[in-house]
Amino acid sequence: MPAKKSSTLKNAFPIILLTIVVTVCVSILTFVDSLTRDKISAQEDEAVKALLSEMFPGMSHFEYQDEIYTIYADGDQIGYAFLAVGNGYGGDINILVGLEDETTIKGITIASQSETPGLGTRIAEPAFTDQFAGLAISDVSLSRDGGQIDAITSSTISSSAVVEAVSQTAMEKVKQLKENQ
């Protein structure tokens, strides 16, 4: 900055400069946000749709209401799906749970998780998730607790987080479905 300037201007300069920098940065962010917003929300919709149609292969479309996806195949209702959140070892585990009807699990998919790589992350592998397919909701608990699900070796916290989230949320959602009828 030039040395000889009136002292007011000199004192104000840092404030003015910071204001300009912040204004420019905010404009850039607004611009980038407007460029990427549609792409990001389309991506999230796509991700949900891909997960649902993988779980319900015959799906033609779905409706989303009160946090429950109702799945249709050409007019016939073929099931429900909803999100369950488990309290994992490394944070929230988001699980997409599909129901065949009001008593039976269609399947589960781990939508996102931040478990320990190589250990807890194995909850997302079919070897674990496939165990849920076709189970009665009441049978969803770990085998050491008398249920039908084998926990992953050395990842008991992650395994039981998934099991608890699936069984509790499934019971809540079934109750909610029955009330709505």
Partner: peptide, 20 residues
């Protein structure tokens, strides 16, 4: 403050682009 604002802006841009 100016450095941090610039860095935070760049990080947010990268964040949005990676997300998209």
């Amino acid at each position: 403050p100016i450095f941090i604002v610039i860095i935070a802006t760049l990080v947010t841009v990268v964040n949005l682009i990676f997300h998209a």
